[in-house]
Simulated assay, not measured.
Amino acid sequence: MARQQWTDMIVGDRMAVDRDFSQRVTDSRFSRQEWGLIMTAVEFDIENPGDDEQAKLVADTSKVRQVMPEMENIQSQMNAMGGKLQKKESKGIFSSVKDALGMGGGGGDGIDEERLAAAEGLAQEYADELQSHLESNDKWNRVRTAVQE
């Protein structure tokens, strides 16, 4: 079954889990806006859908790295609105362009690896919660079967 078809089956379940998971997001290091951005980059897969014991809903977070720069923008805007301007090292236009093209000499891609790991971990916690929700509502087996078709 195509990804969209099985994920369409769980839209209502995701909305229920979103409500239940909102406190976990509040307690995390991410704002609701940042969490929303993270979730736009997350896709869900089911590993071993044909195995009752090994089947697991997993968060594919491979695209989260791509939204991290925008998350930094959100954080900066929120800090500015709150009067807590964070002082950031100012770069010249040429340094910024070189960094954007991957030619910067600063090493790395400017991504806060700790925040990235936290985002990926929280996304997997969400996937675990969603799987538990599906199991408790006797929907997990139906979803696993749909994935295999």
Rank of each mutant, 00 (worst) to 15 (best):
V11E: 15
I10Y: 03
R115F: 05
E114T: 08
A16F: 02
F30E: 01
R142M: 10
M81P: 00
G102D: 09
M68H: 04
V67S: 10
E47C: 15
M78T: 13
E125T: 13
T7Y: 07
D99T: 06
R3H: 14
S22L: 11
E120F: 01
V143K: 03
S31C: 08
I38Q: 03
A127E: 06
S95G: 14
N141K: 15
A146M: 12
L122P: 06
G104Y: 11
K63Q: 08
L134C: 04
G105I: 12
Q5C: 12
L134R: 08
M15G: 02
E72Y: 09
V25W: 03
A41N: 02
E135I: 14
D109L: 04
N48T: 07
S90I: 13
M78H: 08
D13I: 03
I38W: 01
T61F: 00
V147R: 02
G104K: 09
Q66N: 09
Y126W: 08
E125N: 14
D109M: 09
Q4S: 12
W6Y: 15
Q54P: 00
A119T: 07
D112R: 02
G105K: 14
R65H: 11
I46S: 03
A127K: 13
A41R: 05
V67Q: 13
N73P: 00
R29E: 10
Q66R: 11
I10T: 03
A41V: 00
I93A: 07
E72I: 07
V64F: 07
Q66P: 02
V42K: 00
A59L: 00
E129D: 08
Q66E: 12
E120V: 00
E114N: 12
F30M: 04
S62Q: 11
Q131R: 15
R24L: 08
A59W: 00
E125R: 13
E34R: 06
I111S: 01
R65Y: 09
R142N: 10
A123W: 01
L134H: 05
M78I: 14
E89M: 11
Q5P: 03
E89L: 13
S31D: 02
G110F: 10
E129S: 14
G12I: 07
D138E: 14
S76C: 08
